[in-house]
């Protein structure tokens, strides 16, 4: 029992196979409260599948997935897990394109999700202030009334990060947040994620090594569904197995 108290996310012995192919194989990962973890690894290493397991999209064949040291995530569905306080940003920006930037954030804002409380919801002054604050953080305040479809790729990424902030989760799962961003936007994103990780746990999946370096966090390298190496970025990237399997010659 002692192993998983005081953890925000605890995965142990997790395996899942699709048609006999082991996408995740005896995976063990721990994320502590207010800690950032960067996950790197080659394509097909199981990074996105791992996120699917945590958020309830995929059920593992075996293993333990605990949130906040006690809640068994394998028994819950996506909506229940999201309401526990796990927010996810997708690899491909998944914003609601036929809604305005403002409405995207309003829907994400942490509020009762029931049918009737949603039907009769009216934004309070606090809610408006909070959404405005998030818009400023993700620098979309000038475009708040535009349809999300009209944003650039990088702005959609930021909007999705904004939606994560609006959900006020305890654990953020961020899949390739800087794909399609300029260098300065990438730096800003790293700064923002570091800021967030002071109060919440953050798991970032990313291929961009300079971005991972900017994050300055603990790094896990996945390959073929299990942990290949773990430590600081320097330790991991100096690991001969990692060089051979992922970073290349």
């Amino acid at each position: 029992m002692s192993a998983h108290t005081d953890t925000m996310l605890y995965l142990d012995g997790v395996s899942v196979a699709f048609d006999g192919f082991k996408a995740i194989n005896n995976l063990a990962i721990i994320v502590k409260p207010a800690e950032m973890l960067a996950i790197i690894g080659p394509n097909g290493a199981g990074k996105t599948t791992m996120m699917d397991i945590i958020t309830g999209k995929t059920r593992p064949d075996a293993g333990q997935v605990l949130f906040d040291g006690r809640t068994d995530l394998t028994r819950l569905d996506e909506a229940a897990i999201a309401n526990l306080g796990i927010g996810r940003k997708f690899q491909k920006p998944a914003v609601f394109e036929s809604h305005t930037v403002w409405d995207n954030l309003e829907m994400a804002l942490k509020k009762p999700r029931g049918i009737f409380s949603t039907l009769f919801y009216t934004a309070s002054d606090d809610d408006v202030a909070r959404i405005t604050e998030i818009l400023e953080t993700v620098r979309l305040i000038a475009r708040k009334d535009e349809f999300a479809a009209n944003l650039s790729h990088g702005q959609k990424q930021w909007l999705e990060i904004g939606m994560l902030l609006a959900q006020d989760p305890k654990l953020l799962l961020v899949d390739e947040p800087v794909a399609g961003m300029t260098d300065s936007e990438t730096e800003e994103t790293a700064k923002l994620l570091r800021e967030i990780s002071k109060t919440r746990s953050v798991v970032v999946v990313e291929h961009d090594m300079s971005f991972v370096r900017d994050l300055g966090s603990r790094v896990v390298c996945l390959a073929e569904g299990s942990v290949l190496a773990e430590g600081s970025l320097d330790q991991v990237s100096a690991n001969p197995v990692v060089i051979e399997r992922y970073l290349g010659r």
Partner: peptide
């Protein structure tokens, strides 16, 4: 995506 925002 809506499910992952916590809506049923």
């Amino acid at each position: 995506r809506t499910r992952f925002l916590g809506y049923r």
